[in-house]
Structures are given as structure tokens and as C-alpha cells.
């Protein structure tokens, strides 16, 4: 049987805590349902990664599509 922690909180409290941590007190007070939906959407998993994905894959932070194949055009 799972141990019950003294810090167990309800879903609604969790949503409120997250909203407050993000400075969204006002949004939560005015639009609690929208904030709850946003928490659910924002924290949903990205889904399974493809076979070629690796934890050390370089992210495309400075994104340059030319690195991934060039159709035409001349560099200046």
C-alpha cells in the first residue's frame, strides 16, 4: 500500500501552486478552468522519440535549415 505523504495535494491545489509559481495568480483567479487545461496540456508528454534520437543529439537551437540539405541559391 502506498504511503500517504503529509504533502499530498489535490489536483486543483497542484494547478494553483504551479500557476502561482509562474506568476499567473491573476489568470488563475479569473480563468481557473483555462489554467487547469493549460497545465494538463503543457505538462503532457512529448511522446516516444524516434529510433535515431539520442539524449546527446545536438538541439536545433540556432536553427539553420541549410545544414539539412541545400536546394539552390548562392551564399552571399
Amino acid at each position: 500500500m502506498a504511503e500517504k505523504s503529509e504533502t499530498d495535494i489535490t489536483g486543483a491545489q497542484w494547478v494553483r501552486a504551479l500557476a502561482l509559481a509562474r506568476g499567473l495568480d491573476r489568470a488563475h483567479a479569473l480563468f481557473p478552468a483555462a489554467v487547469a487545461a493549460a497545465v494538463a496540456r503543457g505538462t503532457s508528454s512529448l511522446g516516444p522519440q524516434p529510433a535515431k534520437f539520442s539524449a546527446v543529439t545536438e538541439p536545433a537551437v540556432t536553427f539553420d535549415p541549410a545544414e539539412f540539405g541545400d536546394g539552390s541559391g548562392e551564399p552571399t
Binding site: A34, A37, A38, V39, L46, P59, V61
Partner: peptide, 17 residues
């Protein structure tokens, strides 16, 4: 609003993906 709750690691994972 959902953008407020995306973990940093998910953003990096998406850029890796």
C-alpha cells in the same frame, strides 16, 4: 497559457527531435 507549464527539458527535447 500551456506554454507556461512546458518543462525546460521538453523544449530541449523538441529541439533535439
Amino acid at each position: 497559457l500551456p506554454g507556461a507549464f512546458i518543462p525546460a527539458v521538453d523544449y530541449v527535447r523538441a529541439q533535439q527531435l
